[in-house]
Design a protein around this nucleic acid. Structure first.
Length: 468
RNA sequence: GGCGCUGUACCCAAGCGGUCUAAGGGGAAGGUCUGCAAAACCUUUAUUCGUCGGUUCGAAUCCGACCGGCGCCUCCA
């Protein structure tokens, strides 16, 4: 039974999709005014792991991630760069998609853009006005927070506390400081779209409501994003959507913890960030993914190069295992040997962990335990049969590869045959040298190859090589 | 000021009232294998879970106080 923590109820709940075997899931994507940072990447990667696990469970997942391609920051950047807002948005939207590929994130079913949903947005604003949840002041349309009785139900805030907080922007046009923009009147020189209230552009929150409703329906299963979106963004989305449709917007709200630097939230405004594309230059996606998956998605997590290095070592353990597995497969025998081993327990432990609010750290521990035990069998049984090795491969394929995206069987494919033959010559030469106790030559061959990125691994039976 | 999260070994981290004399990864130490390495395997590295109380037959896990860290309440994943 899959359980997940629902921000709306503050409880871990059994996951029951609206339509059996189907999941409709929406994760807030980026505002494309800059490259996204490694903290944003954490949300995208862990959402990806969740999506992949849902697929592992047999659900068909419709996964939507929006791209906010019109907003104040984009306009500001466009002015600074003396470019069209749309060219800035396009640049970073493309960069966003490229970076997702680099991070080994499965593409969403759809990446809807705000500017491509102006009609839907206008329709929703219109319906909010008609229903009395919004008001128009000189072409600025605001949401009337006091009209929506459920306001604050997601973030656990109540209006009185928020008002006494008194740090909300002062805007003469608003009835209440907490009211927020649905439609912003265009200022001189700003991009705009026509609307019944004059030229303007959508407020930030409305696009997610409109696009969520359009692509996933008025009610859908899972909606998530970084914890900083709980209030006001997601709170406002609920207010907008539920006021306009009269239906519950989302059943399960999930939120991802922050990535910290020196215990402080990584953020653009603090300037303490590294872009994902920078980090992925120094660490493969697999390392980054393992690092994130080693802790729970909702908690906060510190970022440092040292921690990434530790994960890199951990990943090597997995990669070494896959390498050994491949070697074993080459020499595998057909007949079945009785090996006291079953993957069953590992599957059920893995699922039990992931079913518990996606406890990826625990699930990874299961994978590491699995590797340890099979390694032990490798030591104990020099010759293994094919069906056994296939079962081992299948387990890792389904867990480490398909769910976590931290390993691959395809990568580092079989080398060209010429290379193999040349390597065979060198290996034989070295074996001869060793037999003659000419260790200086043997070591030189090994060291020289190592500097080319080729590692020689001796074992009793034979010597194999590995490219890094 | 309001709301919420958090403090587990040298580092990261799981743990959601008994199976905890506490997973997993990294690091460190010793051993097996090896000409030497690498990989792999074995052993060791928290009788203890920020502190102090309480509830309970039983607590890292629940409650309270205190000390420390963080977040949201304004754009932010």
């Amino acid at each position: 039974m899959l359980k997940l923590y629902n921000t709306l109820t503050n409880k871990k709940e059994e996951f029951i999709p609206l339509v059996p075997n189907e999941v409709k899931m929406y994760i807030c994507g980026p505002t494309v005014y800059d490259y996204f940072h490694i903290g944003n990447a954490r949300t995208f990667i862990m959402a990806d792991v969740i999506r992949r696990y849902l697929e592992y469970k047999g659900f068909t997942v419709k996964f939507v991630m929006n791209i906010t391609d019109i907003d104040d920051k984009i306009i500001k950047k466009a002015i600074d760069r003396k470019k069209e807002y749309s060219s800035v948005a396009k640049t970073y939207a493309n960069a966003f998609l490229e970076d997702l590929v680099k991070l080994n994130i499965k593409p969403a079913t759809i990446y809807p853009k705000a500017t491509e949903h102006i009609d839907e947005i206008i329709a929703m604003v219109k319906s909010l006005l008609e229903r009395g949840f919004a008001y128009n002041v000189n072409g600025n349309v605001f949401y009337d927070v006091l009209k929506f009785t459920g306001y604050g139900k997601l973030s656990g805030k109540n209006l009185e506390d928020l008002e006494s907080g008194a740090r909300v922007e002062i805007n003469e046009e608003k009835n209440n400081p907490l009211d927020f923009s649905l439609w912003k009147k265009a200022k001189e020189g700003e991009p705009f779209w026509e609307s019944p209230w004059g030229n303007g552009r959508p407020g930030w929150h409305i696009e997610c409501s409109a696009m969520g409703c359009k692509h996933l329906g008025e009610t859908f299963d899972i909606h998530g994003g970084g914890s900083d979106l709980i209030f006001p963004h997601h709170e406002n989305e609920i207010a907008q959507s539920e006021a306009s449709t009269g239906k519950q917007f989302v059943h399960y709200w999930i939120h991802f913890g922050f990535l910290n630097i020196d215990n402080e939230k990584m953020s653009k405004s603090l300037g303490n960030f590294f872009t994902a594309r920078e980090v992925v230059k120094n660490f493969p996606a697999e390392v980054i993914r393992l690092f994130f998956a080693q802790s729970h998605y909702a908690g906060s997590l510190n970022y440092s190069v040292e921690l990434l290095d530790a994960s890199k070592k951990g990943l090597e353990k997995i990669e070494n295992f896959l390498f050994t597995l491949k070697e074993k497969q080459k020499s595998a025998v057909d007949h079945t040997k009785k090996i006291p081993f079953s993957c069953k327990k590992y599957y059920s432990d893995f699922e039990e962990a992931m079913d518990d609010d996606f406890n990826s750290a625990k699930a990874l521990a299961v994978i590491f335990d699995f590797i340890k035990e099979v390694n032990r069998l490798f030591v104990e049984y020099p010759q293994l049969d094919k069906p056994f090795l296939e079962k081992v491969e299948k387990f890792l394929q389904k867990t480490a590869v398909d769910v976590f995206g931290i390993a691959s069987f395809e990568r580092k494919e079989e080398s060209a045959s010429l290379e193999n033959e040349l390597m065979e010559i060198l290996i034989q030469l070295r074996i001869t040298a060793k037999a003659e106790k000419n260790f200086a030559l043997a070591d030189k061959i090994r060291d020289d190859l190592k500097s080319l990125g080729i590692q020689l691994l001796d074992s009793k039976e034979k010597t194999v090589y590995k490219k890094s």
